[in-house]
Design a protein around this nucleic acid. Structure first.
Lengths: 350, 350
DNA sequence: TTGTAAGCGTTATCAT
DNA sequence: ATGATAACGCTTACAA
């Protein structure tokens, strides 16, 4: 245990109130600059750290924020959602910066939302962040938490309602922008590859967005350009990629529904004599970490993990005092963000 | 905030001391059974939860355990260490069961150990768990933490010393047992594939163990049977796998240094007309989650995540009271554990 | 400008 | 068998 306020007060010959005020920057002209300096210097010398328990006790707060995870923590690595961990790491750091502690709650999404919410309430957290939940499940759980008057927000889910808090990247707009990007580079034939691990939450959304964008921007039916693997097996991803290359021998523009198997597909392209970035253009979507593992790095539209996390915390902490408050519901659909890479140049202006 | 002890006492017409004793099961015949029941029932009805802050304050404890991660949380997904997250999830749950809170500290391993330890001390945790650190770095940090009298243990690192606390699976013994396993099945030619992402901490250890075991059990030089990819690229893993199959056309026994690219290699085997489990035997090592994603499931020797986590907590909490204590240093090298799968039968007895 | 003191919920020591 | 009460470290209303 570090030095206490009482001890600091004793050594400075002042009262605990004075020390507390100075340490919390609440001494608006109430404490003489001299005292102020002495107290701060002594605190620093002894490495003073406020006792969270005491502080929390007197303030009636827990300084905890729970991050609610669907199923096991390791599950998201298996389904290739690496950005899940990036967001978790960002949350851990940024919450610590605010003096909060991150609590990880792994819950069984099959249970009724009300039961989950009741259990979560026992975590005595001041706020809840639902990380990467499917939209419907997120909606149910957020609603149940709201009934218990617990501030909560979904991070990485697009909900159909404006009465709950959530943030996500706009997948539809990203696909649409990516199509415009490739069309702007002169391509008139695009291949769309959905090689992500099944069952994917977003596969139908992405495919639909692609077909709409193709219809709108090229005036044709894009269905012959869509190639989706039917299973989660790597072998199936390989087969699907090869099938696409055989089916569209003249295609020089490729859109990946997810960066997950990007490295694999770039490899297939190279084998097929269409080296990415030189003989053809490839655009991905998803985790930047995955994209940058590719050679060349995969140009893609981003998940914007940092922006998502920032929005979550800003919403949860929007009360003036830095305390978690029950905020009015807020949501945001982040616009497409291009991340450069060797597989495709930026879109031409206009 | 749930109901308090004081309120409970008021409603039962007893003192706070009585309630506290009953609630903490410290009323050895001191409280009458009738009172006891009344108190417990009322507490249950109001969903009483003890206030951690108050408890921690009076006990002078923080009920926090820090899990120290090398670099970013997401890093381990990129290098294919999925079991990292499995262990993290196990830690989160088991610590919560003990009334503890898990704090994730992402630290820059390039900084001096003493500086890291000083920063970690500010986390005011009662104990530290170094998750999946390379041995030398773990040794330095554990030593620095010990100098600050902070209980700490490394999970998933093999250290050269018995004066620090650590737990790991015995990689050497696992490889050796796997070789014996395949030899016991009648194989006289083994291929050893190291396709893991570079730079791997354990590649030299595993290769060395393989060569030793082959020398010992077959009396030959195993070097022509070792195939290692030189880079982290997927393309290199593919090339290395294919090279091994070409170089050893009659080999029917394969040992994978890591389950990471297991699915990929099984695919290559099938393509080469040697379907795993039927035409040949394949044994892996590492994450069970990865192995079970393969078709057929990859038989392998386990990392024993649960056993590792159990050992960590048992060591950290070994004081009688369930409090974290500064324990005498303890370590354990977990023995090989076979996990069945379709790619290889269990070893014949004897 | 500074000090005093009440109080947060809990545990544990002493009385009764 | 049970109750009073001090103590833990901190914040803050109020007094000086």
């Amino acid at each position: 245990m570090s030095i206490t306020i009482a001890e600091l007060a004793r050594r400075c010959g002042v009262s605990t109130a004075t020390v507390s005020l100075v340490l919390n920057r609440k001494d608006q002209g109430r404490v003489s600059p001299a005292q102020r300096q002495r107290i701060l210097r002594l605190a620093d010398r002894h490495g003073y750290r406020s006792n969270v328990a005491a502080k929390g006790l007197v303030e009636g707060r827990t300084y905890r924020v729970a991050v609610v995870v669907e199923g096991a923590l390791a599950h998201h690595a298996l389904i290739g959602q690496f950005s899940f961990y990036e967001r978790l790491g960002l949350l851990a750091d940024q919450l610590r910066d605010r003096g909060y502690l991150m609590e990880i709650c792994q819950v069984d999404p099959a249970r009724p939302a009300a039961a989950i919410a009741r259990d979560l309430a026992r975590a005595s957290a001041e706020g809840f962040i639902l990380l990467a939940w499917p939209g419907p499940a997120a909606t149910r759980l957020l609603t149940a938490l709201r009934q218990q008057r617990l501030p909560a927000i979904a991070c990485g889910s697009t909900l159909a309602t404006a009465t709950l808090s959530w943030v996500d990247v706009d997948r539809r707009a990203s696909v649409r922008t990516a199509v415009r990007h490739l069309v702007g580079l002169g391509h008139r034939e695009l291949a769309f590859l959905d090689l992500s691990v099944r069952p994917s939450l977003f596969a139908p959304v992405r495919t639909r967005a692609f077909l709409d964008a193709v219809r709108e921007q090229l005036g044709v039916d894009g269905r012959p350009w869509v190639f989706a693997s039917a299973t989660a097996a790597l072998a199936d991803a390989v087969a699907t990629g090869e099938r696409a290359l055989r089916a569209l021998p003249r295609a020089r523009a490729f859109l990946l529904a997810d960066n997950l198997h990007g490295e694999l597909f770039l490899h297939l392209l190279a084998l097929a004599g269409r080296p990415p970035g030189r003989a053809c253009h490839v655009l991905g979507f998803g985790d930047t970490v995955l994209a940058q593992r590719c050679r060349p790095a995969l140009a893609h539209y981003s998940l914007q993990n940092e922006a998502q996390v920032r929005f979550c915390l800003a919403t949860l902490f929007q009360a003036r005092t830095g305390a978690v408050a029950a905020p009015p519901p807020q949501h945001e659909l982040l616009p497409p963000l291009f991340i450069a890479g060797g597989t495709c140049p930026a879109a031409p202006p206009g």
